[in-house]
Protein backbone atom coordinates (compact mmCIF):
# COMPACT_ATOMS: atom_id res chain seq x y z
CA UNK A 1 0.00 0.00 0.00
CA UNK A 2 0.96 3.60 -0.42
CA UNK A 3 -0.58 7.05 -0.45
CA UNK A 4 -1.54 9.36 -3.35
CA UNK A 5 0.05 7.28 -6.12
CA UNK A 6 0.58 3.61 -6.96
CA UNK A 7 1.34 1.19 -9.81
CA UNK A 8 -1.85 2.16 -11.67
CA UNK A 9 -1.21 5.93 -11.63
CA UNK A 10 -1.05 7.28 -15.20
CA UNK A 11 1.40 10.15 -15.46
CA UNK A 12 1.94 13.01 -17.89
CA UNK A 13 5.25 14.90 -18.18
CA UNK A 14 4.86 18.60 -19.03
CA UNK A 15 8.05 19.91 -20.56
CA UNK A 16 9.13 16.42 -21.65
CA UNK A 17 11.42 17.53 -24.48
CA UNK A 18 13.68 19.65 -22.27
CA UNK A 19 16.95 18.39 -20.80
CA UNK A 20 15.54 17.73 -17.30
CA UNK A 21 12.18 16.56 -18.61
CA UNK A 22 13.59 13.92 -20.95
CA UNK A 23 16.25 12.72 -18.49
CA UNK A 24 13.79 12.25 -15.64
CA UNK A 25 11.19 10.67 -17.91
CA UNK A 26 13.78 7.95 -18.54
CA UNK A 27 14.53 7.66 -14.82
CA UNK A 28 10.85 7.45 -13.86
CA UNK A 29 10.19 4.79 -16.50
CA UNK A 30 13.20 2.83 -15.21
CA UNK A 31 11.65 2.97 -11.73
CA UNK A 32 8.39 1.55 -13.06
CA UNK A 33 6.24 4.66 -13.36
CA UNK A 34 3.48 4.50 -15.95
CA UNK A 35 4.28 7.53 -18.10
CA UNK A 36 1.47 7.80 -20.67
CA UNK A 37 2.39 11.01 -22.44
CA UNK A 38 4.44 14.15 -22.58
CA UNK A 39 3.55 17.75 -23.37
CA UNK A 40 5.65 20.19 -25.33
CA UNK A 41 3.80 22.87 -27.28
CA UNK A 42 4.82 22.76 -30.94
CA UNK A 43 6.50 19.38 -30.63
CA UNK A 44 3.44 17.11 -30.75
CA UNK A 45 3.94 13.89 -32.71
CA UNK A 46 7.50 13.26 -31.50
CA UNK A 47 8.40 10.60 -28.94
CA UNK A 48 10.74 10.90 -25.94
CA UNK A 49 11.96 7.68 -24.29
CA UNK A 50 9.20 5.95 -26.26
CA UNK A 51 6.54 8.26 -24.80
CA UNK A 52 4.22 10.09 -27.24
CA UNK A 53 4.47 13.89 -27.13
CA UNK A 54 1.37 16.11 -27.43
CA UNK A 55 0.99 19.85 -27.98
CA UNK A 56 -1.54 20.37 -25.20
CA UNK A 57 -2.75 18.62 -22.06
CA UNK A 58 -6.30 18.51 -23.46
CA UNK A 59 -5.02 16.66 -26.53
CA UNK A 60 -3.23 14.09 -24.36
CA UNK A 61 -6.45 13.55 -22.38
CA UNK A 62 -8.37 12.85 -25.59
CA UNK A 63 -6.11 9.83 -26.10
CA UNK A 64 -6.22 8.33 -22.61
CA UNK A 65 -7.10 9.17 -19.01
CA UNK A 66 -4.41 10.78 -16.87
CA UNK A 67 -4.16 10.79 -13.06
CA UNK A 68 -1.13 12.97 -12.43
CA UNK A 69 1.20 15.38 -14.13
CA UNK A 70 4.76 16.46 -13.38
CA UNK A 71 6.10 19.82 -14.55
CA UNK A 72 9.61 20.46 -15.84
CA UNK A 73 8.79 23.97 -16.98
CA UNK A 74 10.86 27.15 -16.44
CA UNK A 75 9.45 29.14 -13.50
CA UNK A 76 8.02 32.07 -15.51
CA UNK A 77 5.81 29.66 -17.52
CA UNK A 78 4.94 27.23 -14.75
CA UNK A 79 1.68 28.92 -13.75
CA UNK A 80 0.28 28.63 -17.26
CA UNK A 81 1.23 24.96 -17.49
CA UNK A 82 -0.17 24.14 -14.04
CA UNK A 83 -3.48 25.92 -14.75
CA UNK A 84 -3.71 24.04 -18.06
CA UNK A 85 -3.36 20.69 -16.30
CA UNK A 86 -5.88 21.68 -13.62
CA UNK A 87 -8.38 22.97 -16.17
CA UNK A 88 -8.05 19.75 -18.16
CA UNK A 89 -8.98 17.81 -15.03
CA UNK A 90 -5.67 16.36 -13.81
CA UNK A 91 -6.01 15.69 -10.07
CA UNK A 92 -2.37 15.44 -8.89
CA UNK A 93 0.16 17.97 -10.08
CA UNK A 94 3.83 17.89 -9.12
CA UNK A 95 5.62 21.23 -9.49
CA UNK A 96 9.36 20.62 -9.72
CA UNK A 97 10.60 24.15 -10.61
CA UNK A 98 12.17 26.52 -8.12
CA UNK A 99 11.65 30.32 -8.25
CA UNK A 100 7.98 30.31 -9.27
CA UNK A 101 6.71 33.79 -8.30
CA UNK A 102 4.82 33.76 -5.02
CA UNK A 103 1.68 35.32 -6.48
CA UNK A 104 1.66 32.70 -9.27
CA UNK A 105 1.87 29.97 -6.64
CA UNK A 106 -1.08 31.47 -4.74
CA UNK A 107 -3.15 31.58 -7.94
CA UNK A 108 -2.32 27.96 -8.72
CA UNK A 109 -3.32 26.89 -5.19
CA UNK A 110 -6.63 28.77 -5.37
CA UNK A 111 -7.59 27.12 -8.64
CA UNK A 112 -6.45 23.69 -7.40
CA UNK A 113 -8.73 24.05 -4.39
CA UNK A 114 -11.64 24.88 -6.69
CA UNK A 115 -10.87 21.82 -8.83
CA UNK A 116 -10.30 19.65 -5.74
CA UNK A 117 -6.85 18.72 -7.01
CA UNK A 118 -3.63 18.03 -5.11
CA UNK A 119 -0.56 20.17 -5.73
CA UNK A 120 2.85 18.88 -4.65
CA UNK A 121 5.45 21.66 -4.47
CA UNK A 122 6.61 23.94 -5.98
CA UNK A 123 10.35 23.51 -5.49
CA UNK A 124 9.92 19.84 -4.61
CA UNK A 125 11.67 16.60 -5.57
CA UNK A 126 8.22 15.05 -6.01
CA UNK A 127 6.82 11.94 -4.41
CA UNK A 128 7.44 8.21 -4.68
CA UNK A 129 5.50 5.15 -3.61
CA UNK A 130 8.45 2.86 -3.14
CA UNK A 131 8.76 0.04 -5.62
CA UNK A 132 5.74 1.05 -7.67
CA UNK A 133 5.57 4.68 -8.82
CA UNK A 134 7.91 7.64 -8.74
CA UNK A 135 6.77 11.10 -9.85
CA UNK A 136 9.84 13.16 -9.17
CA UNK A 137 13.58 13.56 -9.51
CA UNK A 138 14.97 11.54 -6.58
CA UNK A 139 17.70 8.93 -7.18
CA UNK A 140 15.91 5.60 -7.79
CA UNK A 141 18.03 3.21 -5.80
CA UNK A 142 17.33 4.50 -2.28
CA UNK A 143 13.58 4.08 -2.49
CA UNK A 144 12.82 0.47 -1.57
CA UNK A 145 9.48 -0.78 -0.21
CA UNK A 146 9.02 -0.96 3.54
CA UNK A 147 6.88 0.22 6.46
CA UNK A 148 8.00 3.85 6.94
CA UNK A 149 6.25 6.92 5.57
CA UNK A 150 8.44 9.99 4.99
CA UNK A 151 7.41 13.60 4.49
CA UNK A 152 10.02 16.31 3.96
CA UNK A 153 10.42 19.98 3.13
CA UNK A 154 13.82 19.47 1.52
CA UNK A 155 15.20 17.15 -1.13
CA UNK A 156 18.80 16.13 -0.62
CA UNK A 157 18.38 16.03 3.16
CA UNK A 158 15.49 13.62 2.63
CA UNK A 159 17.69 11.41 0.41
CA UNK A 160 20.33 11.51 3.14
CA UNK A 161 17.83 10.25 5.70
CA UNK A 162 16.22 7.67 3.40
CA UNK A 163 19.77 6.60 2.48
CA UNK A 164 20.48 5.88 6.16
CA UNK A 165 17.30 3.79 6.29
CA UNK A 166 18.22 1.87 3.13
CA UNK A 167 21.67 1.13 4.58
CA UNK A 168 19.85 -0.40 7.56
CA UNK A 169 17.52 -2.40 5.26
CA UNK A 170 14.50 -0.30 6.20
CA UNK A 171 12.22 0.63 3.32
CA UNK A 172 9.48 3.18 2.80
CA UNK A 173 5.80 3.18 1.81
CA UNK A 174 5.59 6.63 0.26
CA UNK A 175 8.06 9.53 0.44
CA UNK A 176 6.59 12.98 -0.18
CA UNK A 177 8.54 16.20 -0.81
CA UNK A 178 6.47 19.21 0.18
CA UNK A 179 8.80 21.73 -1.45
CA UNK A 180 10.93 24.53 -0.06
CA UNK A 181 8.82 27.55 -1.04
CA UNK A 182 6.72 29.78 1.19
CA UNK A 183 3.48 28.75 -0.50
CA UNK A 184 3.20 25.06 -1.29
CA UNK A 185 0.25 22.77 -1.98
CA UNK A 186 0.41 19.68 0.21
CA UNK A 187 1.46 20.38 3.78
CA UNK A 188 2.60 18.14 6.62
CA UNK A 189 -0.94 17.62 7.93
CA UNK A 190 -2.36 16.56 4.53
CA UNK A 191 0.32 13.89 4.27
CA UNK A 192 0.19 12.79 7.93
CA UNK A 193 -3.58 12.25 7.56
CA UNK A 194 -3.00 9.90 4.62
CA UNK A 195 -0.23 8.01 6.43
CA UNK A 196 -2.45 7.59 9.47
CA UNK A 197 -5.08 5.93 7.24
CA UNK A 198 -2.66 3.79 5.24
CA UNK A 199 -2.44 0.30 6.78
CA UNK A 200 1.02 -0.37 5.29
CA UNK A 201 2.57 2.67 6.95
CA UNK A 202 3.62 1.72 10.50
CA UNK A 203 5.38 4.92 11.43
CA UNK A 204 6.34 8.29 9.96
CA UNK A 205 9.48 10.40 9.64
CA UNK A 206 8.93 14.13 9.37
CA UNK A 207 11.83 16.15 7.96
CA UNK A 208 11.34 19.85 8.63
CA UNK A 209 13.35 23.01 8.73
CA UNK A 210 13.28 26.55 10.09
CA UNK A 211 10.78 29.10 8.75
CA UNK A 212 6.99 29.22 8.66
CA UNK A 213 4.78 27.39 11.13
CA UNK A 214 3.96 24.13 9.36
CA UNK A 215 5.93 21.99 11.85
CA UNK A 216 4.09 23.58 14.76
CA UNK A 217 0.74 22.96 13.05
CA UNK A 218 1.80 19.38 12.32
CA UNK A 219 2.69 18.93 15.99
CA UNK A 220 -0.79 19.95 17.04
CA UNK A 221 -2.32 17.53 14.55
CA UNK A 222 -0.07 14.70 15.75
CA UNK A 223 -1.00 15.34 19.37
CA UNK A 224 -4.72 15.41 18.64
CA UNK A 225 -5.27 12.90 15.85
CA UNK A 226 -2.45 10.44 15.30
CA UNK A 227 -1.94 6.99 16.72
CA UNK A 228 1.16 6.01 14.73
CA UNK A 229 4.62 6.99 16.01
CA UNK A 230 6.28 9.98 14.38
CA UNK A 231 9.94 10.89 14.59
CA UNK A 232 11.41 14.11 13.25
CA UNK A 233 14.60 15.71 12.08
CA UNK A 234 14.81 19.49 11.71
CA UNK A 235 17.43 21.48 9.81
CA UNK A 236 18.54 24.98 10.67
CA UNK A 237 19.53 24.89 14.34
CA UNK A 238 22.57 27.04 13.53
CA UNK A 239 20.87 29.41 11.07
CA UNK A 240 21.06 33.15 11.83
CA UNK A 241 17.75 35.09 11.89
CA UNK A 242 16.67 37.16 8.89
CA UNK A 243 18.69 35.19 6.33
CA UNK A 244 17.13 32.95 3.69
CA UNK A 245 18.89 29.61 3.92
CA UNK A 246 18.63 28.46 0.31
CA UNK A 247 14.91 27.75 0.36
CA UNK A 248 12.58 30.72 -0.02
CA UNK A 249 10.64 29.47 3.00
CA UNK A 250 13.65 28.80 5.21
CA UNK A 251 13.92 32.10 7.06
CA UNK A 252 13.40 33.17 10.65
CA UNK A 253 11.35 36.36 10.49
CA UNK A 254 10.33 38.55 13.40
CA UNK A 255 11.17 35.82 15.85
CA UNK A 256 8.87 33.30 14.15
CA UNK A 257 9.78 29.97 12.59
CA UNK A 258 12.69 29.27 14.93
CA UNK A 259 14.30 25.89 15.42
CA UNK A 260 13.54 25.98 19.16
CA UNK A 261 9.84 26.66 18.64
CA UNK A 262 9.54 23.68 16.29
CA UNK A 263 11.47 21.29 18.53
CA UNK A 264 9.37 22.35 21.50
CA UNK A 265 6.06 21.90 19.65
CA UNK A 266 7.03 18.50 18.27
CA UNK A 267 8.50 17.21 21.54
CA UNK A 268 5.37 18.23 23.41
CA UNK A 269 3.35 16.27 20.86
CA UNK A 270 5.36 13.18 21.76
CA UNK A 271 7.53 13.27 18.64
CA UNK A 272 11.12 12.20 19.15
CA UNK A 273 13.37 14.76 17.43
CA UNK A 274 16.70 13.31 16.24
CA UNK A 275 19.84 15.39 16.82
CA UNK A 276 21.67 13.91 13.83
CA UNK A 277 20.45 12.22 10.64
CA UNK A 278 22.49 9.10 11.46
CA UNK A 279 20.45 8.49 14.65
CA UNK A 280 17.28 7.98 12.66
CA UNK A 281 17.59 4.27 11.77
CA UNK A 282 17.93 3.37 15.47
CA UNK A 283 14.93 5.49 16.42
CA UNK A 284 12.95 3.93 13.58
CA UNK A 285 13.87 0.41 14.66
CA UNK A 286 12.79 1.17 18.21
CA UNK A 287 9.50 2.64 17.02
CA UNK A 288 8.80 -0.26 14.67
CA UNK A 289 9.47 -2.78 17.43
CA UNK A 290 6.78 -1.09 19.53
CA UNK A 291 4.33 -0.45 16.66
Amino acid sequence: MSIFIDKQTRVLVQGITGKQGSFHTGQMIAYGTKIVGGISPGKGGQTVEGVPVFDTVFEALEKQPVDASILFIPAPYAKDAALEALDAGVKIIVLIPEHIPLHDAMEIMAYARQKEAVIVGPNTFGLVSSGSCKIGIMPNRYFIPGPVGVVSRSGTLCYEIVGHLTDSDIGTTTVVGLGGDRVVGLNFIDVLEKFEEDPATKMIILVGEIGGSSEEEAAQYIANSMTKPVIAYLAGRSAPPGKRMGHAGAIIERGRGTFESKVKALSEAGVKVAELPMEIPLLVKAALAKA
Binding site: S154, G155, L157, S238, G246, A250
Partner: peptide, 23 residues
Amino acid sequence: NGAGITMATLDMVQHYGGAPANF
Protein backbone atom coordinates in the same frame (compact mmCIF):
# COMPACT_ATOMS: atom_id res chain seq x y z
CA ASN B 1 23.96 20.43 -2.69
CA GLY B 2 20.46 21.26 -1.50
CA ALA B 3 19.22 23.80 1.03
CA GLY B 4 18.09 21.30 3.66
CA ILE B 5 21.25 19.23 3.65
CA THR B 6 23.42 22.36 3.68
CA MET B 7 21.58 23.58 6.77
CA ALA B 8 21.94 20.12 8.32
CA THR B 9 25.68 20.20 7.56
CA LEU B 10 26.06 23.52 9.37
CA ASP B 11 24.04 22.18 12.30
CA MET B 12 26.29 19.13 12.48
CA VAL B 13 29.46 21.26 12.33
CA GLN B 14 28.13 23.18 15.31
CA HIS B 15 27.05 19.96 17.03
CA TYR B 16 30.64 18.68 16.93
CA GLY B 17 32.04 21.97 18.23
CA GLY B 18 33.08 23.63 14.98
CA ALA B 19 32.03 26.94 13.48
CA PRO B 20 30.78 27.23 9.89
CA ALA B 21 32.07 30.19 7.85
CA ASN B 22 29.12 30.21 5.49
CA PHE B 23 26.05 28.55 4.01
